[in-house]
Write a protein that binds this DNA or RNA. Structure first.
Lengths: 136, 136
DNA sequence: GTTAAAGCTTACCACGATAGGAAGGTCAAT
DNA sequence: ATTGACCTTCCTATCGTGGTAAGCTTTAAC
C-alpha cells in the first residue's frame, strides 16, 4: 500500500521545503504530482525517495540541470554507469576548480592581512594592496 | 591635469564592464559620475583608481556590501586599520568555510565515484549512494 | 454543527552580481 | 550628410531560495 502525503508532510519527511518541491515541478525536474479533488498535491513513497535523492545531490553541489540528468539516469534502469560517472567526475572537476580559486583568494588575502597591524593607526597594507595590487 | 574618459574607456582601462560601472553607481557603491552636457558619464583618474580597487576586491571574493565598506575605509584617511583588518579576517573566515564545505563534497563524491566502474553495466554506486545515503 | 487554526493553492516580489538586448540620442570621421 | 561607434535608459534573464498576500480546504476544538 502506497501511503500518500500532502506537500507539507513531504517537505518535513524529505528535508526539501514545499516551496522547492513546487519549484522542482515547475522547472520539470519532477513530474507533475497527482492532485486531490480540491487540488492538493499528493506524493507517494517513490516520489518521496526522489525528493531525498534531489536533496542529497544538492548537498553535493550538483546544479539542478545535473540533478535532472542524475534523476533520469536513476529512473532509467538501462543506463550505463559510464554516463553517471562521467557526470560525477565533471562535477568533481568543477569542485576542484572552485577550491583552487578560493585557496588563491585565501593566500593573497592572508598575506595582506598578515602585513596589517590592525590597530588604531590609519596605515593599512590591505587597502594599499587593493589600491594598487602588484601582480595584476 | 585630470584626464576625463567616458564609460567605455573607463571599462577597458579598469577591466570593469560599462554595465557594471553603471550598476555600482546605481547601488550606491560609486558616487554619481559627472556628465557631459549630453549626458555621457565622465571619469577622472581617481574614479578609475576606485574601479580598479573594486575589481581587485571582487577578485578576492568580497561582496559588494563589503567592498562599499572597504572603499569608504580607503577614502577615509582617518580610518583605523583595525576595522579594515577585521573585515578582511571575517571574509577570510568565510572563504575558509567555503573551502571546507567544498572539500567535504569532494570527499563524498570522490568516494562514490571511486566505487563506480564507469562501464556499460547499469550498476552504479553513485546513484545508489544518492538514493539512500548512509550518513544523512 | 459552528468556528478557528492549520494547511494548501496560485501569483507575485526579492536577493546578488552579471549579461543581453532594444530603442533612441550623440560624437567623430569620412 | 551619412555612417558607425559610442552612449543613454529600460527591460529581461540567470539560479536557487525565501517571503508574502489572497483565497480555498481540511482538521481540530468546542
Amino acid at each position: 500500500m502506497d501511503k500518500l502525503v500532502t506537500i507539507g508532510k513531504a517537505a518535513s519527511l524529505t528535508g526539501v521545503s514545499a516551496k522547492m518541491i513546487r519549484y522542482y515541478e515547475e522547472i520539470g525536474v519532477l513530474k507533475e504530482a497527482n492532485r486531490t479533488a480540491s487540488g492538493y498535491r499528493l506524493y507517494n513513497q517513490g516520489q518521496l525517495q526522489q525528493l531525498g535523492f534531489i536533496r542529497r545531490a544538492r548537498n553535493l553541489g550538483f546544479s539542478m540541470t545535473e540533478i535532472q540528468s542524475l534523476l533520469n539516469f536513476w529512473l532509467d534502469t538501462d543506463r550505463e554507469s559510464r554516463d553517471v560517472k562521467q557526470l560525477a567526475l565533471s562535477h568533481l572537476h568543477e569542485i576542484n576548480e572552485k577550491i583552487v580559486e578560493l585557496e588563491q583568494m585565501r593566500e593573497v588575502l592572508q598575506k595582506l592581512a598578515d602585513k596589517c597591524d590592525g590597530d588604531d593607526s590609519p596605515d593599512c597594507p590591505i587597502l594599499e594592496g587593493l589600491a594598487q595590487f602588484s601582480s595584476e
